[in-house]
Nucleic acid binder design. Sequence first.
DNA 1: GAGTTATTTCAATAATTATTGAACATACTG
DNA 2: CAGTATGTTCAATAATTATTGAAATAACTC
Lengths: 189, 189
Amino acid sequence: MQLSPLVQSFVLHFGEMGSRWGINRTVGQIYALLFVAERPLNADDLVDMLGLSRGGVSMGLKELQSWNLVQLRHLPSDRRDHFTTPDDVWAIMRTLVEERKKREIDPTLTTLRDLLMARPQSDGDAHAQARMAAMHDQIELLTTWYADIQKLETERLVQLLSLGSRIAKALEFKDKFLVLPGGKKGAAS
Amino acid sequence: MQLSPLVQSFVLHFGEMGSRWGINRTVGQIYALLFVAERPLNADDLVDMLGLSRGGVSMGLKELQSWNLVQLRHLPSDRRDHFTTPDDVWAIMRTLVEERKKREIDPTLTTLRDLLMARPQSDGDAHAQARMAAMHDQIELLTTWYADIQKLETERLVQLLSLGSRIAKALEFKDKFLVLPGGKKGAAS
DNA sequence: GAGTTATTTCAATAATTATTGAACATACTG
DNA sequence: CAGTATGTTCAATAATTATTGAAATAACTC
């Protein structure tokens, strides 16, 4: 089967971007097609529409499943596996962030913690540990913030994002006139 | 020159993670070493300490400069180029987000806009465009939010992050009792 | 300007990663 | 059970990316 020029362009773009996103062209194309498809597609559909090998599609789908980016579906009176992407783009984004965090951030956080436990053997080590501590604390603050935000319902998350830095304005105000919970008065800027 | 075991571990970890972060081992190691170094290092230092080739270090530094992740420095009475990473880990993170956005998100946003301008040729196309529009709007909301947040001073950003979802609690409260600027009453959840 | 030092470039090669397609495995069907 | 449909694995190969090191370039020094 033949893709429309519109879908074709979308699929090719995702294939090309794949390498920048840390996935390969095949996986990018499969995901793109599933994302815009009107109905769940099976492996043969993907082979047909994308011109990829049978094995490649199988491996690509396996990878997408490991990322929790596609869902396996079964259609009545068809025993082939069909695949879809979730409808909710916000759910997709949460998954993406979650998985990237797991693969790209958590291992570093663990390594940093290990290295910060070691006794420094020199001035150089002490300085290195101070830098690692700064990095660790920053990553930890970000991931804690994310874990917190991540629990919000989509509606409220969108609301929060739409508000943007107007929240910071409010903070500024509060900072000028109120006493913080820790008992420390915020510095007026 | 020889790296201490502590720094060695850190450097090797960044080298290994490099591939997951879309940079190569060489670049990861160079960055890691510059990040923890007590003083600016020149290319020879890096060749010595990391055991890389002269050319590799030159190319690695060029890439890091294109990411704005290292700064070129000149020391008095030494004409060699020396390099450092910025001291402020928050500044580093801003750079990182900025650059990744530029490389990984902006091209897709452009493509989506182009494809959304096209007249759909079929029901399939119309559905595909609806999906692309959802993706586009989400990315745009996120990037707009980021552009907004990004202007904050570090101190206030940290404050905002520390607050986390407590802000959402406040929103929930407001949503229950207040009328939104648009004149629409928020639904009580 | 001849020599020296610092840096970049780039062709060759090494290493890694992606992709195919045929063989294998599994599970239905009559 | 033989035949068929579906899905996976994996060795071979293609394609891409990383890395080296020698040659070229540039920029100083005496």
